[in-house]
Amino acid sequence: MLINTMQPQRTAVLLIGFQNDYFAADGILYNVIEESSRATKVLENTVELVRCLLATPVLLIATPIFFTPNYQELIEPVGILKTIKDVGAFQVGSKGSQMIDELLPFRSNILEVPGKRGFNAFINTNLEEILQEKEITHVVLAGAVTSICIDSTGRSAHEKGYQVIVLSDCTSARTVFEQEFYHTHVFPLYADTINHTELLQRLTIA
């Protein structure tokens, strides 16, 4: 498979949703992914991954989601976006919208790409322009929520011609079942699903 020819300088890791409202114990939506996060040890594994990648040419990108206090960006939202509005999550300037503490030590090494307002990190952002400028061929996905933002961004990346990798131990879903189902039955339809240790090995970093 092409993934085995991965080059660090042509690889980007997208860190999706690593914000306090999802991952901090007092986050508004913490309970949505708490079970899966604990099962996959998503924070521990992601921090280890980022630490190992710091001295490499791999491009680290965070794509946070946040809204104005009145959520004027959301027009008649449904599903999880309606829930976000109803509970007041990811308000710009709030603690909940900020990057999780675990990743703050690496913030200067992570390129933040703002503008995400929905599921797909390519929509309303300049993410694709950055990937093209850096001549990226492989897009690696980590974060939350597996069945929503990870899947939506992954499908879009695939359709744009990138080789897509989804990290099984650096992503978090609403339930353990959902996490396993997507990595077993959904992602393999358009991506490769491996853990972060396998990724480091394929990048010849570990």
Rank of each mutant, 00 (worst) to 15 (best):
Q7I: 07
Q9C: 08
R10F: 00
T11S: 09
L15N: 03
N20M: 01
D21Y: 02
F23M: 08
D26H: 08
V32M: 13
E35M: 11
S36V: 08
A39Q: 10
V42I: 14
V42L: 09
L43Y: 01
L43A: 07
L43D: 05
N45E: 09
T46N: 07
T46C: 10
E48V: 05
E48A: 13
L49I: 09
L49W: 04
L54V: 03
L54P: 03
L54H: 01
A55K: 10
T56F: 01
V58C: 01
V58H: 00
L59Q: 08
L59G: 00
I61D: 00
A62E: 08
T63H: 01
N70T: 14
Q72F: 01
G79V: 09
I84W: 04
I84G: 06
I84F: 11
K85S: 07
D86Q: 14
V92Q: 14
G93L: 03
S97N: 04
I100A: 06
D101W: 02
P105R: 07
S108L: 03
S108G: 06
E112K: 03
E112T: 15
E112G: 00
K116Y: 02
I123D: 14
I123E: 15
T125Y: 01
T125K: 06
N126R: 13
L131G: 11
Q132I: 14
E135F: 00
L141R: 05
A142L: 07
G143T: 08
V145S: 11
S147N: 12
I150M: 11
D151Y: 09
S152C: 12
S152A: 15
S152R: 05
A157W: 00
A157V: 04
A157K: 03
G161K: 05
Y162Q: 12
Q163V: 11
V164C: 03
V164Q: 07
V166C: 12
S172I: 05
A173R: 04
A173Q: 02
V176G: 02
E180W: 06
F181M: 12
L189T: 14
A191G: 11
D192K: 13
T193V: 15
I194W: 12
T197S: 12
